[in-house]
Simulated scan of single mutants.
Amino acid sequence: MLCRSADLIAEARASGSGLAAFNVITLEHVQAVADAARRTGRPAIVQISQNAVRHHGGDVMPLAAATTAAAGRADVRLALHLDHVEDVALLHRTAECGASSVMFDASRLPDDENIAATREAVRWAHGRGLFVEAELGEIGGKGSAHTPGARTDPRDAARFVAETGVDALAVAVGSSHAMVSRTAALDLALIARIRDEVPVPLVLHGSSGVPHGTLRAAVAHGMTKINIGTLLNISFTRSVRATLAESPDLVDPRRYLAPARDAMTDAVTDCLTALGPPDAR
């Protein structure tokens, strides 16, 4: 069933488990997340980024419709989320496309402008019952939540949440986007300090580069929503390359998309299992 992100996040936070949120680009991505959720019995968030929307000609509806259709199967609990939305016009399509949450990203703006823009996005979204995630910008030159080497100051985080009213906060604790090797080391003590200062759930971006054991430790120290994207793309691309190398004359895309979808399903299954409640692993 199609669920609300807020409910899945609250459930994960209360149970001490991590809630995996997977960025999707193609129909096969959506199917892989749904199949893995069904296989494991674990809920998941399907995320459509502004970049993915741009790839599809600026229209969020096709992927969103695929997600809501997949969630319509009674044995799957999925929520739809719009990720890294900078365009206010796309923000305003959140509820229309079936999403119950949005990550509004004004982190490129100076701190005061980021706070003002995020506060307005929250005001608009809360008026429509939507859950809002955001992140700090380049405060004091430290970079945003997905800049390599950046670290979030707990006091800055607490001030940002208080002044914007966001429902979840993406923080910089050692991960970064688009990592193709699982070698990121997280600052677990910093996660715990932020958790103690910030009253809303914490979000880890760039989780594809973090080993499962470290992700579990991050959840134990206070992280709730775990964003994963590149890991799916690695599985997808590796499978397509292998299939085409074995059959260089192949022209039917179904012949290489099906195993690529299966590879992503296995990757998502692995993540969902690793992030489940400790007594369920």
Rank of each mutant, 00 (worst) to 15 (best):
D252N: 14
T273W: 13
T40W: 10
S49W: 02
A145E: 02
G140N: 01
R4T: 10
R77N: 14
D87I: 09
A14N: 12
P277F: 11
E120D: 07
A125P: 02
A89T: 06
A21L: 00
E133R: 08
G222A: 11
V30N: 03
C97N: 02
T26S: 14
V203I: 01
F104S: 10
L272T: 11
T273H: 12
R151A: 10
D153Q: 02
E138G: 13
S247T: 15
S107C: 07
E197L: 04
P211E: 01
E246M: 05
L78Y: 07
L275G: 11
A168V: 02
V210Y: 05
D249L: 09
T214N: 08
T243E: 08
A157R: 03
A71Q: 03
L109C: 09
R77T: 08
F236P: 00
G213N: 09
E86W: 12
L109S: 11
V251S: 15
D196S: 08
I194P: 02
L231S: 14
H56V: 01
T265H: 01
H92I: 10
E86H: 15
A69R: 05
R93S: 12
D266F: 07
T265L: 05
L136V: 03
T230R: 05
V60K: 06
A12N: 05
C271V: 15
I9H: 07
L190Y: 03
V219K: 00
G98C: 08
N114V: 00
Q50M: 08
T265G: 02
R128K: 07
D112G: 01
H84R: 04
L204H: 00
H126M: 02
A218N: 01
R238A: 15
S235A: 14
G137C: 03
I9S: 00
G72N: 13
A64D: 04
E246Y: 06
S175M: 05
H56T: 04
V122Y: 01
R195A: 15
A65T: 10
A10C: 13
L244N: 08
L91W: 00
D252A: 15
L190T: 11
L8V: 02
V210N: 01
T164L: 00
A69H: 11
F131C: 09
D105C: 01
V240P: 07
R261N: 07
L27M: 14
T273P: 06
R38M: 00
P148Y: 02
T147V: 06
E246D: 11
R238D: 11
V268C: 04
L19Y: 12
D262R: 10
R155D: 13
R42S: 06
A242T: 12
W124Y: 13
L63A: 02
A178C: 05
V24G: 07
G127W: 12
N114H: 02
T147A: 05
S181I: 03
M61T: 14
H84P: 09
A185K: 14
T147G: 00
P148C: 04
A36H: 08
S235F: 03
R128N: 06
E96D: 12
L215I: 08
L136A: 03
S17T: 08
D75W: 07
L275I: 02
A245E: 15
A217K: 03
D262S: 13
